[in-house]
Nucleic acid binder design. Sequence first.
DNA 1: TTACAATTATACTCAGTAGGTATTATGTCG
DNA 2: CGACATAATACCTACTGAGTATAATTGTAA
Lengths: 313, 313
Amino acid sequence: MDLRQLRYFVGVARERNFTRAAQQLNIAQPPLSRQIQALEDELGVALLIRNSRPVRLTEAGRLFYEQALQVLGRVDQMRAATRRVGLNQNSVLSIGFVASTLYGGLPSLVRKLRHRTPDIEIQVLEMMSVQQIPALKEGRIDIGFGRLHHSDSGVVEIVLREERLTVAIPRDTPLAQDSAPLPIGALTGQKLIVYPKEPRPGYADQVLNLLHGHDVRPAEVQEVREIQTALGLVAAETGLCVIPSSARQMRSDVHYRLLEGERATSPVILYHRVGDTSPYIDLVKEVIKEMYAENPPWLSAEHNLPTRPSFAE
Amino acid sequence: MDLRQLRYFVGVARERNFTRAAQQLNIAQPPLSRQIQALEDELGVALLIRNSRPVRLTEAGRLFYEQALQVLGRVDQMRAATRRVGLNQNSVLSIGFVASTLYGGLPSLVRKLRHRTPDIEIQVLEMMSVQQIPALKEGRIDIGFGRLHHSDSGVVEIVLREERLTVAIPRDTPLAQDSAPLPIGALTGQKLIVYPKEPRPGYADQVLNLLHGHDVRPAEVQEVREIQTALGLVAAETGLCVIPSSARQMRSDVHYRLLEGERATSPVILYHRVGDTSPYIDLVKEVIKEMYAENPPWLSAEHNLPTRPSFAE
DNA sequence: TTACAATTATACTCAGTAGGTATTATGTCG
DNA sequence: CGACATAATACCTACTGAGTATAATTGTAA
């Protein structure tokens, strides 16, 4: 498959007519026909219904059309951004983050950074905490926001906050009758759902270690790939699930109770390379400091321990 | 630019070595060098620093590398999804939505639909309300979720709910001293920020019409492209902004007050083609009905009028 | 500093393929 | 059914991507 083929197919799908599409693409009609045929051949799927005038799209073609439009748009953006950076000799600040930080301060951090540094290109990449450490060392990212402590001497970690953990409980079960914080011991003998299944170690192990440290043994542990599935299973009364409190808003048809205990938390951690002299690292810290001072909703005392980033006195 | 060039560049960027990359790509080293040169030529930007061993990425190259990875991944997904649909003769349900429905029931609707119909491919496309009507008629989407009434006889609209409007007010200004609902008249003579600038007609016109209908004339109207900018300007004390209540959660450093009055609402509307016999339309309505019965948080009485979709008696 | 090993760029050739032209086949509509 | 519009096929040409041989450059170690 080839970008040219995508462009050609988009042309035909838009015009619903090979001849007109060929004109707009500045080629003759026969080569256009052949390229579309080649595309269909490679996919092993018919994209167009030709024994009909005007030509119609198959269901597969309809899907492929929208996807192709998006890919082509993405390529254009990529080209433009690369030129911008290259021609202006700008630098790139590449930020890795775990999905759960999207429910915290990340979006507004990125907005603030973009606003304050229009001369650099900010790139955000979703990745798990464990992947962030090698990504930092290889230079794929400059800053990471994750939830896992690590022991790599090449990477500094700064704990930004300690978010309290919440237990998601199926409605109409005994534990859901109360809304008071739940002692960790109450999880003994319960079915537990845990995520993500991989990569390991991950947040799942944080939860399992916490229980283990309190000598709490669930009846059964089921691992799933993502939090959405986990909460779905909770709603289906398959078991309980321990989540960071900010993830409560993801689903409203289950019952939530805070987990009791000083240690029942998950940190949000900022990573960066040791000895990274880029001024942007300090800028990020600066902006984070300001954001924490504003007392945003994701920093509520109810869902966070009263710790603060070490650089934010 | 060509997908082959992206694959080649990714190879070199990963290996930081032309020779090894060429081996893994199953080509000789010279053609690889030339393709990379051609890519850099077309972009007009250096992606690699060659007078260094191992080869390093420039800032532009670093950006391009991650973007290329994502584009290639996207292409693979596209190929797989198209094959899935084509080979199994599945159908595609294509859903258009305005961004603000992301703060309402859309994500969970899509999840539920995917779960209940594993045999169809669900595709979601973000687009403004006005664009959804032609998209429906052209068959680009089958279902739309928007906020605008229309008068096209080919498209049915079903008002799902009437969401109350909220005024975003800069902190520490007189209007922000109270949290009670604000009469529409209070906007007289105020500076107003309105979004989106285009396409017209859009939500901006809804707000302007509402004011006009109450003979309220703001001192000044500033149009911006998106809600984030609008709220940013509010925070910067540039003026007030009227938003759907569900958008409150986007920003916490401004003050919010409900707008008073029966008509101070913005609908959430389901569109589909007249006479669309697909069983999936009914399924969608069915699922929406269930969701509304569950009283999700985005349906709170505080932020919505007590109307319900006509099919959900 | 020099020489050698490793690695990338250049020169040249060949083959595959994209595109063009001419023509045939197929569908649509009066 | 016939005429027109439109897509597919056949065939040719030219370009471009890939291979081989070789030169140029970089890093390193004596």
